[in-house]
Design a protein around this nucleic acid. Structure first.
Length: 371
DNA sequence: AAACGCCGCAACCGCCGAGGT
DNA sequence: AACCTCGGCGGTTGCGGCGTT
């Protein structure tokens, strides 16, 4: 195993280590301790360069190294940390006791990265790859729910994850389709159901004018909806210009959205997130650590009739229709998420689905609740 | 059974920054 | 300031294992 020697300068051996060499190295370090790697091979009688000895020790022979497959919790931690730290493998490894940076790097490149790609998630940005998502299938699932408003706002969250969104013909087609579906479904706006809205400036610039220009949506901008749309636009403006949580008392809102229901997320911003990172501790509930470490979250809103806080960050807000999973396989086609080949893949995909899920009830939605 | 191709991972490569001279 | 050494890091390589044909 391992890379074959590309050269053999100075008579030093390269390539895979033998068990005899391992014994010599371990015995020497046990007696003298690690360090002074340049002189170590000469003193220990190894025909290796110091760098090779150091790598062999730190990546393989160190007694505190944990071997074996990564646990689900470790995978979660790696993904969370990678979303914040990027390819800082040593920094990630520092929070996974017993795992080396090399091991984590390999595991990322050979397992996690590929799975994220298959799921349509960019492993670099951790954002959904909108260019690969089949919007028509997404729309189809919404059509089945006969809830265009939910689809509309759910889509808005989807689009909100894309930092640079150009005018999208798909979006315009979608809005047109939704407008036709809206007929006869006014009652869906009538009930209160607290949710979170995280809509980007891009969406504001595109979707709202698109709606306004559509005769069938013009009602949204009159009567009951105009104040809320104004609030919506104001909120988005503040978020996008200030980059932090606006004072929600500035908005006219239903009583159910009093300010105490809004919990600022202390992990907003990469620097803050990094400084608040805990050391790795296996969690009994896999979802518990995800939002807090997502790092880019705006705020949390408790759901009505629920004790569960849903935290929606830039990177983690994506609508995942129940009826139409859009899992990508390696060839770029779409698989049902349940068709995953292995148990651990299902674990990870389940985690990612939870990470990305943003559910809106099928039957009810009030635009007021987004303010 | 043999050939082939894919995958996992140990190990190498090149670069960088810190520290010493 | 310039140079050197050392340790550390991220990216890449390629052997060996394994599954498929």
């Amino acid at each position: 195993m391992g890379r074959a020697p590309c050269c053999d300068k100075n008579g030093l051996k390269k390539g895979p280590w033998t068990s005899e060499e391992d014994v010599v190295l371990v015995n020497y370090i046990q007696e003298h301790g690690p360090g002074n790697w340049r002189n170590l091979p000469k003193n220990a009688g190894l025909q290796r360069c110091g760098k090779s000895c150091r790598l062999r020790w730190t990546n393989y022979l160190r007694p505190d190294i944990k071997r074996g497959r990564f646990s689900f919790e470790e995978e979660e931690t790696i993904i969370q940390l990678h979303s914040i730290l990027g390819n800082k493998w040593s920094a990630i490894a520092a929070r996974l006791p017993g795992r080396t940076d090399n091991e984590i790097k390999n595991y990322w490149n050979t397992h996690i990265r590929k799975r994220l790609l298959r799921m349509g998630i960019d492993p670099v940005t951790h954002a959904p790859r909108l260019d690969l998502l089949d919007l028509s299938s997404i729309l189809g699932s919404y059509v089945s729910n006969i809830n265009p408003a939910a689809a509309l706002l759910n889509l808005s969250n989807l689009l909100g994850t894309q930092q640079a969104l150009n005018v999208n013909p798909e979006l315009l087609r979608l809005v047109t389709t939704l407008s036709s579906l809206k007929q006869g479904n006014q009652q869906m706006f009538s009930q209160n159901q607290n949710q979170v809205c995280n809509i980007s400036q891009d969406l504001q610039n595109q979707l709202v004018p698109s709606l306004q220009s559509n005769p069938q949506f013009q009602n949204l901008f009159q009567d009951d909806f105009s104040p809320d749309m104004a609030n919506l636009k104001q909120l988005m403006q503040m978020i996008n210009t200030e980059g932090n949580l606006p004072n929600m008392s500035n908005f006219s809102s239903p009583a159910s959205y009093s300010q105490e229901n809004i919990v600022p997320n202390s992990n907003f911003g990469p620097e803050t997130a990094v400084s608040n990172l805990p050391s790795y501790v296996p969690s009994s509930t896999s979802n518990s650590t995800v939002p807090e470490l997502a790092g880019n979250s705006f705020f949390q809103l408790p759901l009505n009739n629920s004790n569960v806080n849903h935290d929606f960050g830039f990177d983690s807000v994506l609508s995942t229709p129940h009826s139409s999973p859009t899992t990508l396989n390696s060839s770029g086609t779409y698989n049902n998420i349940n068709s995953s080949s292995t148990e651990d893949e299902r674990d990870l995909e389940s985690y990612c689905s939870n990470l990305l899920k943003f559910e809106i009830p099928d039957s009810t939605l009030d635009i007021n609740d987004y303010m």
